[in-house]
């Protein structure tokens, strides 16, 4: 249980650092005297910091849930067709009703993400159980196919720029007050999952054990599907998909704490927030005053972490 305070302090320190790092100089001690500094802080720095932390936390929790749903450690919301599904929904509503209100776009993205993730679940149900590596491969193939559909439609309708911001570059430089608040919904959905943590942990033990313990597996699957899809849809719309977080963080935490999700989900959320915030800060610092998207940094770091995890995985996958 020492992880929780350690990660909380790390997150707090990173958030404070995040408030001070950027193109404009902001002295935290002077904000109450300097209206300009206050403006930068409240309109840009604070929203950005919160957006990064919320995204990291929500995506990591979504990663745990999708891994419990498919009973495989090597998938995340970015490799299960979920993000591409959300982009497909957004694309459809943008074409069919260009002036649609934001909430409607959110619903379209969430529903479409739910459909493609359900498709992924249906596909892997038919795979032989023992072939552990077929599940992530099926996810990658499905994501690839859906992604190319999105690209094709985006290309034909001249909407590639949108598609790029949803799927290609997860980055936070565009976040200002009023344009990130949907991420609170994502974090809220992820937070609600904690109340069903035991159910997801039991689901992860397999259909047989779950049924024996009197769990209605279909209901838990639906709940997990809804949370994963909502989280991903909100992230895709507001900041673009961030790779690897939902895959790597659940694995790292499970290695240390195991899969008692009631205890580990808060740690997973915090660790995800810390990781993405660290990457975003790094992206802001390496070529300052310019930026490298947090998604790019995570792409590199996440790939390395994933390879390490693959190499050191326990005997039972």
């Amino acid at each position: 249980m020492r992880l929780l305070p350690a990660l909380s302090s790390a997150l707090l320190a990173l958030m404070l650092a995040s408030l001070t790092v950027g193109a404009a100089q902001v002295d935290l001690r002077a904000v109450f005297r300097d209206p300009q500094a206050m403006l930068v802080l409240l309109e840009s720095r604070l929203p950005r910091t919160l957006a990064v932390a919320l995204t990291g936390a929500a995506l990591s929790v979504a990663g745990v849930l999708i891994q419990a749903l498919v009973r495989n450690r090597f998938v995340g919301p970015d490799t299960s067709g979920t993000a591409e599904g959300a982009a497909l929904g957004l694309l459809a509503i943008t074409i069919l009703w260009p002036s649609s209100p934001l909430w409607l776009r959110m619903i379209a993205a969430s529903l479409s993400a739910m459909v493609t993730t359900a498709l992924f679940l249906a596909v892997i149900r038919r795979l032989p159980v023992r072939e552990v590596m077929l599940v992530p491969i099926a996810g990658l193939v499905l994501s690839g196919v859906l992604g190319s559909v999105v690209t094709f439609v985006g290309w034909q309708t001249d909407l590639m720029q949108y598609v790029g911001t949803w799927l290609m570059s997860g980055e936070f430089s565009g976040v200002i007050s009023g344009r990130y608040e949907l991420l609170w919904i994502a974090a809220l959905a992820a937070g609600l999952a904690w109340f069903s943590a035991d159910r997801f942990a039991i689901l992860g033990l397999g259909d047989q054990v779950a049924t024996g313990l009197g769990l209605s597996t279909a209901a838990v699957m639906r709940l997990g599907l809804a949370v994963v899809s909502m989280v991903t849809a909100m992230v895709v719309t507001t900041v673009g998909m961030i790779p690897f977080v939902g895959l790597v963080v659940p694995n790292l935490v499970a290695r240390v704490m195991g899969d008692n999700l009631r205890a580990s989900l808060p740690v997973v959320g915090l660790a995800g927030a810390v990781l993405v915030l660290a990457c975003d800060l790094l992206g802001r610092l390496v070529i300052r005053p310019y930026e490298i998207p947090a998604g790019v940094i995570l792409g590199v770091l996440g790939a390395v972490l994933f390879l390490v995890l693959l190499h050191r995985r326990p005997a039972h996958g």
């Binding site: 024996g212 009197g214 209605s216 899969d259």
Partner: peptide, 30 residues
């Protein structure tokens, strides 16, 4: 209802390899 049955009978199927990483005490506690 399946949760009612879970208080009448416990069933242990044949073991399959599972990916879940629970401590034995946590598994038994379920």
């Amino acid at each position: 209802p399946t949760d009612r049955l879970a208080r009448v009978m416990a069933i242990l199927g044949q073991q399959t390899a599972i990916a879940s990483r629970l401590r034995l005490s946590e598994l038994v506690a379920f």
